[in-house]
Design a protein around this nucleic acid. Structure first.
Lengths: 109, 109
DNA sequence: CTTATTGTTCCATCAATATAGAACTACAAT
DNA sequence: ATTGTAGTTCTATATTGATGGAACAATAAG
């Protein structure tokens, strides 16, 4: 298990990979719930999904620069890199986070 | 050939399909160049690509609500539905359009 | 040391979608 | 009528990436 993760520097965060990472229903959910919870580990956000899937999605989000993973013992605590993202792409994450609740209601009921 | 197109109403424009449509290199380019040109037909934005590919991408952008196609004779003139999009998802398109030039320079040189 | 927990890595499978050629349709112009 | 132009539709291929089971690694706890 990797004990250390690479988190891209702000200038390494690119628009298209970021958008591609966001444009997935599972990851969009992860982002929103991380936003609300402030910090969460992988297992907290499994909602019936296998761990390997979630681990994959967290990896994608980490590698494009959306979240930061802090290892604390066995648990990996994830937080959104919101401040950095708002500096790099002002208005992007905030607009999505604002729009998400209505989207979730439309789709999941 | 379809002479009439269906353009979704604002409330039919959903977050995830919108993001999925945007998160493609070709379509991101189309969006940005449409933004600059104001209006353009399919052929104008072919840059060595086959027409069928471009037609596909325009269809995707149309169906998720990003652009409007006005048929004028043989030509299909496309415009971004920016006003609607900014009302529906304030800040989203504008942040992407602002970030695009740097992205294009990073990738295409 | 053994067991439990957390998350990753490996692997195979499957679905979605981008690409592109070819035929076709619609309209315009000569 | 014929030719040209614009764009779509059809079809096949290829690639990407999501899914999920199983084995593994790392830390913690008994």
């Amino acid at each position: 298990m990797a004990t250390l993760y690479h988190h891209p520097a702000p200038e390494e965060v690119a628009l298209l990979p970021l958008l591609r990472a966001i444009a997935d229903p599972v990851r969009l959910g992860i982002i929103y719930h991380l936003y609300n919870l402030g910090e969460a580990n992988c297992t907290t956000l499994l909602r019936g999904r296998p761990k390997s899937s979630m681990s994959h999605h967290f990896q994608v989000l980490r590698e494009v620069g959306i979240l930061h993973t802090r290892v604390e013992g066995v648990q990996h605590r994830n937080t959104l890199r919101l401040t950095m993202l708002e500096e790099r792409f002002p208005g992007l994450m905030s607009s999505i986070l604002r729009a998400y609740p209505a989207y979730e209601e439309e789709t999941l009921g």
